[in-house]
């Protein structure tokens, strides 16, 4: 199936190849039809345009609602809908954000999110590439069965590990620490990481590896000099996917983090109980928590989409 990790060119965006093929086909087909058919086709496509514009609006407006709500005072938010800023732009204020950044607890939770996300992502990428290399290019007994086992672990729900790991952590200083959250994320990120990278590494031409081995390269050197550079796009996909996954996590942190180590998602969630009275804090906090993922998404869209597609049936 082509939607699966295409080992030879994982960074090639689906959109591009599709557009390239779709457009000419439409033009070739057109001249053969009668004028009436063309008219129908054209008005039909007009309808499609309108429909898709409406759908796109439907997808954008809720997010704009959050943005505008975060830019209005609590009084304005209590009195009227965010859309009134379109006619009264004087409502706009950065005060909610200023308040939030003055709040040491929130700033600390932002720091925690970074401290959880960056190490988790790095460890997953390193550990998964090592294992993926072994699965793709090293010979050892039971390799294929072991790999099938990893494929099976892809779908294990996180819920299964919450109770066992919390009793494992229980009583140790690990419980409630940032490290506890990081290690858990690594454990559950690995099956996907290994799966994604192994498929990619396995598609690297054998000649390249054989040549390197012939030259007497040590395996670790081959891994560093040949596999890592060639595997760049897949590693980027994995890294970006995991980064967003961990950044956005609520459940794992809810169970394993303490008040001192909680990330933004948990801090914001605890504000939800007083939603109506707290919209200024929640909306600005939620939007701030989205800024990094959105930047990552727009900057590395292609890799992220690739990672998500490879994650199908996770």
């Amino acid at each position: 199936m082509s939607a699966q990790v295409e080992p030879t060119g994982p960074a090639e965006p689906a959109e591009r190849s599709q557009e390239g093929r779709a457009e000419p086909a439409a033009h070739e087909g057109a001249p053969r039809r009668s004028a009436a058919a063309r008219l129908v086709a054209r008005t039909g496509s007009g309808l499609v345009q309108v429909l898709l514009i409406l759908i796109a609006l439907f997808w954008m407006v809720p997010t704009l609602g959050l943005l505008f709500s975060s830019l209005r005072s609590p009084q304005d938010n209590a009195a009227s809908g965010w859309w009134t800023v379109l006619t009264e732009p004087t409502q706009l204020t950065l005060q909610n954000y200023a308040n939030l950044l003055d709040n040491p607890d929130f700033v600390a939770s932002f720091g925690n999110t970074v401290l959880i996300t960056v190490p988790s992502t790095l460890i997953i990428v390193v550990v998964a590439s090592l294992a993926a290399y072994a699965f793709a290019w090293l010979e050892f007994p039971g390799r294929d069965w072991l790999f099938l086992g990893v494929v099976g672990l892809l779908v294990v729900p996180i819920q299964v590990a919450l109770v066992p790991i919390s009793s494992l952590y229980g009583g140790t200083p690990l419980y409630g620490s940032i490290l506890a959250v990081v290690l858990f994320h690594v454990g559950f990120g690995l099956p996907f990481g290994i799966f994604l990278l192994r498929n990619f590494f396995a598609a690297i031409p054998r000649d390249l590896l054989e040549a390197a081995r012939m030259d007497g390269g040590k395996e670790l050197t081959i891994f560093r000099r040949v596999i890592l550079p060639l595997g760049g796009p897949a590693i980027a996909s994995l890294g970006i996917f995991q980064f967003l996954w961990v950044w956005n996590d609520l459940l794992v942190a809810l169970v394993f983090a303490s008040e001192a180590s909680q990330p933004m998602t948990v801090a914001l969630q605890s504000q939800m109980r007083q939603f109506g009275a707290n919209i200024d804090v929640i909306a600005s906090g939620a939007f701030l928590s989205m800024v990094v993922p959105l930047l990552v998404f727009f900057a590395f869209q292609r890799y992220f989409v690739q990672g998500v597609m490879a994650g199908a049936v996770k």
């Binding site: 759908i55 954008m60 609602g65 709500s69 965010w82 909306a283 993922p293």
Partner: peptide
């Protein structure tokens, strides 16, 4: 269009939840 519709995949469920609480 695809970027617009795909964007919610990048943000947290928490943020999406807040967005829809407002809606």
């Amino acid at each position: 269009f695809k970027i617009v519709v795909f964007m919610p995949m990048a943000i947290s469920f928490l943020a999406s939840g807040v967005i829809f609480r407002l809606v």
